[in-house]
Amino acid sequence: MSLRFAVLSLLDIEPGSGYDLKRRFERSVHHFWSASHQQMYRELHKLHGEGLLDCVEEIQDGRPDKKVYSLTAAGRGALEAWVAKPAAAQKIRDPFLIQVFAGHHLPPAQMRAELQRHLSEHRDKLATYEAQNARFYRRPAEQQQKLWISHQPLLLGIETEKTWIRWAEQLLARLDAEIADRDTAG
């Protein structure tokens, strides 16, 4: 259900084609909501069919015509009504954390290798988020002011990744100490 409102939110900021929308999605909403290219296009067609989006075809030289979507008054109303509703807090659902929970069944070196792999992925994600954050601050001041609240999920993502990395580094240190203890004892 939230993909429809992610699409409406992005088109509320600026009209665009499916391609434009996908690029904007990847630079903003993607850090807390995922959708495939196909899901995005299906949602655009569905929203257009429901009268929540207008669609204008722009003729392009040497390329297929481009469909540019924008919110209708009904689309803006649906978005405003949805935003006004309370959202349920989400619980963490991470299969890796279940593996850590049952990690006493693995040798520390094996758990360490898996943790190191996840740590690398989280460091990459943090780098991506920080690059997106830097792009936000390169926007003109009036755009930053208009979109400051839309920027907050990215800031939460940055803090979440920093916390995850700090937690993983502490766990790695503990695993390293346990491995060293076993090596000296064995």
Results as ranks from 00 to 15, higher is better:
residue 88 A to P: 03
residue 68 V to Y: 08
residue 72 T to K: 02
residue 81 A to Y: 05
residue 73 A to V: 10
residue 157 G to S: 05
residue 147 L to N: 03
residue 160 T to F: 06
residue 69 Y to W: 14
residue 71 L to F: 05
residue 74 A to D: 14
residue 64 P to K: 09
residue 150 S to W: 04
residue 165 I to L: 06
residue 147 L to P: 01
residue 89 A to R: 11
residue 164 W to Y: 12
residue 142 E to N: 10
residue 132 Q to V: 03
residue 133 N to G: 04
residue 73 A to K: 12
residue 155 L to E: 07
residue 118 H to F: 09
residue 120 S to F: 14
residue 129 Y to C: 02
residue 143 Q to G: 04
residue 100 V to E: 02
residue 136 F to A: 01
residue 166 R to E: 04
residue 163 T to C: 06
residue 130 E to N: 02
residue 108 P to L: 09
residue 98 I to F: 08
residue 144 Q to M: 06
residue 124 D to A: 15
residue 84 A to D: 07
residue 75 G to A: 06
residue 116 Q to I: 00
residue 76 R to N: 05
residue 76 R to V: 00
residue 165 I to C: 00
residue 144 Q to H: 05
residue 66 K to H: 03
residue 105 H to G: 13
residue 165 I to V: 03
residue 121 E to K: 13
residue 141 A to C: 10
residue 107 P to W: 15
residue 166 R to Y: 05
residue 90 Q to N: 04
residue 153 P to L: 06
residue 158 I to V: 10
residue 97 L to W: 11
residue 124 D to N: 12
residue 86 P to F: 09
residue 75 G to N: 02
residue 126 L to G: 01
residue 91 K to R: 13
residue 138 R to N: 06
residue 151 H to K: 05
residue 95 P to T: 01
residue 122 H to S: 06
residue 135 R to C: 07
residue 143 Q to A: 15
residue 80 E to C: 05
residue 166 R to Q: 10
residue 101 F to Q: 12
residue 158 I to N: 00
residue 83 V to S: 11
residue 142 E to C: 07
residue 126 L to W: 01
residue 80 E to D: 13
residue 68 V to S: 00
residue 151 H to V: 03
residue 83 V to L: 11
residue 144 Q to I: 09
residue 80 E to V: 10
residue 138 R to E: 15
residue 102 A to W: 10
residue 128 T to K: 04
residue 155 L to N: 07
residue 94 D to P: 06
residue 80 E to R: 14
residue 73 A to L: 11
residue 146 K to L: 13
residue 66 K to E: 07
residue 81 A to V: 12
residue 65 D to K: 10
residue 115 L to E: 00
residue 158 I to F: 03
residue 134 A to Q: 14
residue 127 A to W: 03
residue 111 M to D: 00
residue 101 F to I: 10
residue 104 H to R: 13
residue 154 L to Q: 00
residue 142 E to R: 03
residue 81 A to E: 09
residue 71 L to K: 02
residue 89 A to D: 09
residue 73 A to P: 02
